[in-house]
Amino acid sequence: MASSSQNQGLSKYVTLISLDGFEFVVLREAACISKAIAKMLNTQSNFMEAKDGRCVFGEINGIVLEKVAEYFYYNYKNRNKEDVPDMEIPPELCLELLMAADYLDT
């Protein structure tokens, strides 16, 4: 996987893992909207995450991480559009999601 040419060897997908063990397989390009995840997955950084394509978030639970994954795809889908309707965010998740967004730098 990480042997010959780095970029070609990389999988197109990465796995995000929540603190309660839920795994979300997300398109790498979509997940890298988050600057924090982009840094984790940077192949030059030599992080574990970059080698395995797996990011474990010890402070984000499954429900919030699911919403984060949903946002990644929402953003990815609308990356070249104006007039994008805002993504619905359930008010009860808002604070936790805000903390996660701040941590992930998105």
């Binding site: 990356r79 994008v84 967004a101």
Partner: peptide, 17 residues
């Protein structure tokens, strides 16, 4: 113009509620 970032979305939702 375009998709807002997640922090902005959350802050706006929070402000609404």
């Amino acid at each position: 113009p375009g998709a807002k970032d997640l922090t902005t979305l959350c802050i706006e939702t929070l402000a609404k509620n």
